[in-house]
């Protein structure tokens, strides 16, 4: 350490005393305000460490003397939001479906709340906007397996399809091929007849042979000319809407092995008001009866 601090002759500033290749560094200390601001931030952080959650441990962390937790904030926010919604939710829970439809304010709340509940619970299978996918019905069209009235939609949501619920929607199409009820060529003929019902591409001769088989095996559920029967969940076969595909191969497979999609029951998981709101939303997607 030099006993005498050297001053640079050009600028009059003190040097650090270090020298590299004949070049000396000037000692220009940080401004005072900067230093004190820095000290203030250190003091602040010490206080913060004591008051707020700060030091991590192996099994937990030091929670701070104020007991602050962001999860509490979230819970409070959620509670506040729920309290704000409560009057509407109560009204929806008590109101009949006709009352909800008649009150524009209530209807807007129900369909908006229904959309959010749909995106949280249903969109995983039925897709956003109820667009559907193979095996998961499109809810925006006007073709309904179990009925498209609001009450019928509520029933389906609440108890599900082929679920563990006691009142679940339940039916079973026979496995005509796997269980040997029909021969391979008979299945082909019936498939062609089914395709002919909606005017799709088919083999007219095979369809002619399939007509009597259809009348014998299928008409009880699917109805004359394939009009379907929502009472027993028998899909309409005379339109262009196919849950598992409308080509000859897919229809043949449906007859041979049957299909049995399932939907969980939501009665225990969602409250009455939410189920009502869901039904109002789904009904309003465009296909409601």
């Amino acid at each position: 350490m030099p006993t005498k601090i050297e001053k640079d002759s050009v600028t009059g500033t003190e040097t650090t005393g270090h020298e590299w290749d004949g070049i000396k560094e000037l000692n220009t200390p940080l401004p005072k305000w900067w230093i004190y601001t820095f000290y203030a931030t250190i003091a602040f952080s010490l206080v913060y460490y004591v008051l707020y959650p700060s030091i991590p441990g192996i099994r937990g962390y030091f929670a701070g003397t104020l007991g602050y937790d962001q999860r509490i904030d979230v819970a409070n926010d959620l509670a506040a939001a729920q309290q704000q919604h409560a009057p509407y939710v109560t009204r929806i829970g008590q109101a009949s479906l006709d009352d909800i439809k008649a009150d524009p304010q209530l209807y807007t709340f129900a369909s908006t709340g229904g959309r959010i509940a749909f995106n949280n619970n249903c969109a995983g299978c039925h897709q956003v906007g109820g667009a559907g996918a193979k095996g998961y019905p499109n809810l925006a069209d006007d073709d309904w397996i179990w009925g498209g009235k609001v009450e019928e939609i509520i029933q389906t949501i609440r108890h599900g399809v082929r679920s563990a619920d006691a009142d679940t929607r339940q039916n079973a199409m026979p496995r005509f091929g796997l269980d040997g009820m029909l021969k391979r060529n008979e299945i082909d003929d019936v498939a062609n007849y089914v395709l002919s019902l909606s005017g799709a591409k088919h083999d007219a001769a095979a369809a002619g042979r399939g007509a009597p088989i259809y009348a014998e095996q299928c008409v009880a559920c699917h109805g004359e000319k394939g009009v379907g029967n929502p009472e027993v969940g028998a899909p309409r076969l005379s339109d262009g809407i196919w849950l598992y595909g409308g080509d000859l191969k897919s229809v043949t497979e449906s007859i041979a092995s049957a299909r049995a999609g399932m939907m969980p029951s939501w009665g225990e998981r969602l409250d009455e008001a939410t189920i009502k709101m869901l039904a109002v939303y789904v009904h309003g997607l465009g296909g409601g009866k």
Binding site: G132, N138, I241, G286
Partner: peptide, 18 residues
Amino acid sequence: KDRMPIFVALSDGDIRNG
């Protein structure tokens, strides 16, 4: 234009857009 679903095929063969 509504993009989800992009269009909906109806039972009588008509197409619907939102």
